[in-house]
């Protein structure tokens, strides 16, 4: 693979198609330890939950081991029902992370085309007012109401969070489309006979996708917090299915007795995931810059 190059430069994009771009973004030589660690957390945690043999079942309570402090058997201790915190913390990643990523992807897929094409005319104006209205509503409130109305499955959580996050992508891509609409190369693209779709993606979006991707990564981080807040309020994952927010909520009543571990470990896991996504966003930003400047 052509990952050689001067130190600190990315591989030259010979054909510079989307596939090559993606590969160059992932395989850049400039990986620092922090970025790698962040990627390992985001990809590794759900994988771990899928393949790891748990020391104890994350779903079965042990009535003989209720609220046990962390020890050699129960590494992170047990909760008020006698369930293993370590297994549950890992198991929760299997649900929380994919939901946040799926919701972000959905918001991206819906929001970007809307923003790129809603640049003018009545339809665009109306759409933007709707988007503004959505953005003005408090995230958690819409999500709680939406999820309750839809039923409360994991998919409903994905939809609710996507709806709340989509306005951001509509705004970003619309701003790009508006500022690039009068760019000479966009006019040139029209002059050679490009369809509106081709102009929007090959010329406008191609010059703005960096901001959108970075925003997507930050949105995924944000969504993790929202999911935890929803589960904390009892919306979304149903017990005994573990989620970080739900576990924090359950452990909350134990805090007063000095039993800190039931809330502390899921909180740490959540912060680790959110922090990792933020680190990835930063790495993505600098890397896109470098890949796009190559050659």
């Amino acid at each position: 693979m052509s990952v050689q190059g001067l130190p600190g430069t990315s591989p030259g994009l010979r054909a510079a198609g989307w596939a090559q771009r993606g590969r160059a973004l992932v395989l850049s030589r400039s990986n620092n330890a922090l970025t790698v660690a962040a990627a390992v957390v985001i990809i590794g945690l759900p994988l771990l939950a899928l393949v790891m043999p748990y020391p104890h079942s994350p779903l079965a309570p042990n009535p003989n081991a209720v609220a046990v402090a962390p020890n050699g058997t129960y590494w992170f201790g047990t909760d008020g029902n006698g369930m293993d915190i370590f297994s549950r913390t890992i198991e929760a990643a299997k649900l929380d992370l994919p939901i946040s990523l799926a919701a972000t992807a959905l918001a991206l897929v819906v929001g970007v085309p809307l923003g790129l094409f809603a640049t003018s005319g009545r339809v665009g104006d109306v759409l933007m007012r709707v988007v503004d209205a959505f953005a003005a509503l408090p995230t958690i409130v819409i999500a709680v109401v939406g999820i309750q109305l839809m039923g409360g499955s994991a998919l409903d959580v994905v939809f609710a969070i996507a709806v709340v996050a989509a306005p951001r992508f509509v705004r970003l891509s619309r701003a790009a489309a508006l500022s690039l609409r009068s760019a000479r190369y966009v006019e040139a693209a029209v002059a050679i006979g490009c369809s509106p779709l081709r102009v929007a993606f090959n010329h406008v979006f191609r010059n703005a996708y960096g901001v959108v991707l970075v925003q997507a990564t930050l949105t995924a981080a944000n969504a993790l917090g929202t999911i935890a807040a929803l589960n904390f309020l009892g919306v979304g994952a149903k017990p005994p299915q573990p989620s970080w927010g739900g576990m924090i909520s359950e452990g909350f009543s134990m805090l007063i007795r000095g039993e800190w571990w039931a809330s502390a470990y899921p909180t740490l896991a959540m912060l680790l995931a959110i922090g990792s996504l933020n680190i990835l966003a930063g790495a993505l930003e600098t890397r896109i810059e470098r890949v796009e400047r190559a050659r």
Binding site: L13, R14, A15, A16, A183, R184, Y185, E187, A188, A189, A191, I192, G193, C194, N202, H203, R206, N207, E292, R295
Partner: peptide, 29 residues
């Protein structure tokens, strides 16, 4: 029909998409 009627712009740099290679720019029409 646009391929029969073309235009060259005043600002050479601004009229080329900065993210495309020369090959891609000239091939697109």
């Amino acid at each position: 029909q646009r391929r029969h009627w073309q235009i060259v712009f005043q600002e050479p740099f601004a009229s080329l998409n900065p993210r495309l290679s020369i090959q891609q720019i000239v091939e697109e029409p």
